[in-house]
Structure formats: structure tokens, C-alpha cells
């Protein structure tokens, strides 16, 4: 438990240290950084590219219709430092994403945390604070 606490604290500290400049790379004003949503869905595409990697996720809305969400991540080099690889995700993967959504109802997001069914997690630090477990 103590080891886990240290790990979580170190991760949190790292996130805060490196968060400021990264989120400033491009406009973040279109995102609601005070709101966090969680979606369970299927990856339709994983883009490993500058300026930001992207996860495209098919998830059902309240009415049962499938919506394709586009969620941006950090850039590839920074993701490697965080333990990601270019094959961290692939089309067809079932995952849960937690992220900050766009302000105007567009199905986009930023600051994604990825939770896999087998318990693995991946985080993309972009100035959004400490990763949180999905509800």
C-alpha cells in the first residue's frame, strides 16, 4: 500500500511538473477542463502522429446511437516516455476512456486516461491533473 502510494504520488507530481507547457502547445480553449467524462467503447483508429496522437472511439450515446469520439493525446515522443508504444491501441480494442470533452458538444476530448479490461492503464499528461479511476 505504501509502495502504491509512493507510485501514485510520484506520478501525480510528474503530471503537475510537466503539465503546464504541454497543454499550451495548441488551443485548449475549446475544451471544458472542469468536466470529466467516462466512456466505454471500441477503438476505431489509433493515430500515432504529431502534433498529437489521437484515439477514435465508437461509443453509444444515451439513445443507443454509436458516436465516434476523437480524443487527443500527447505527442509520440512524450507518450513513449510515459510508457506508450505505437501499438498501445489498435482498432477493435474495447477500452474505457476518461477525458475532458469539448465545450460545444462536439465529440472530441483531451487529457485521456485509458483503462483496459485486464486492468492495465495508460495516461496522457496534458495539464489536466491527476489521473482518476473511472466511476
Amino acid at each position: 500500500m505504501k509502495g502504491r502510494l509512493i507510485t501514485v504520488c510520484a506520478l501525480a507530481a510528474g503530471l503537475l511538473v510537466f503539465s503546464g507547457p504541454v497543454v499550451a502547445h495548441h488551443g485548449s480553449q475549446g475544451y471544458d477542463l472542469s468536466k470529466r467524462i467516462t466512456l466505454k467503447g471500441t477503438v476505431s483508429r489509433f493515430a500515432w502522429a504529431n502534433p498529437h496522437c489521437q484515439i477514435y472511439l465508437d461509443a453509444k450515446d444515451d439513445k443507443g446511437s454509436v458516436v465516434n469520439w476523437a480524443v487527443e493525446l500527447n505527442n509520440p515522443g512524450n507518450l513513449v516516455r510515459l510508457g506508450w508504444t505505437h501499438v498501445a491501441l489498435k482498432a477493435g480494442d474495447d477500452v474505457t476512456l476518461a477525458f475532458n470533452p469539448g465545450k460545444e458538444g462536439k465529440p472530441v476530448g483531451i487529457c485521456a486516461d485509458v483503462f483496459f479490461p485486464d486492468g492495465r492503464k495508460l495516461h496522457s499528461t496534458q495539464g489536466c491533473g491527476i489521473p482518476q479511476e473511472p466511476e
Binding site: 502522429a49 476523437a70 487527443e72
Partner: peptide
């Protein structure tokens, strides 16, 4: 670490909300 114009354009088109 290239800046690839088509990737840049796709990012702004598909993701960036503004």
C-alpha cells in the same frame, strides 16, 4: 520527429474543437 502537414491538417480537422 517530423511535422507532417497532412497529419497536422487532419488533427485540426478531426480533433481540435476550435
Amino acid at each position: 520527429d517530423f511535422c507532417i502537414y497532412s497529419d497536422q491538417a487532419n488533427f485540426f480537422k478531426n480533433v481540435d474543437p476550435v
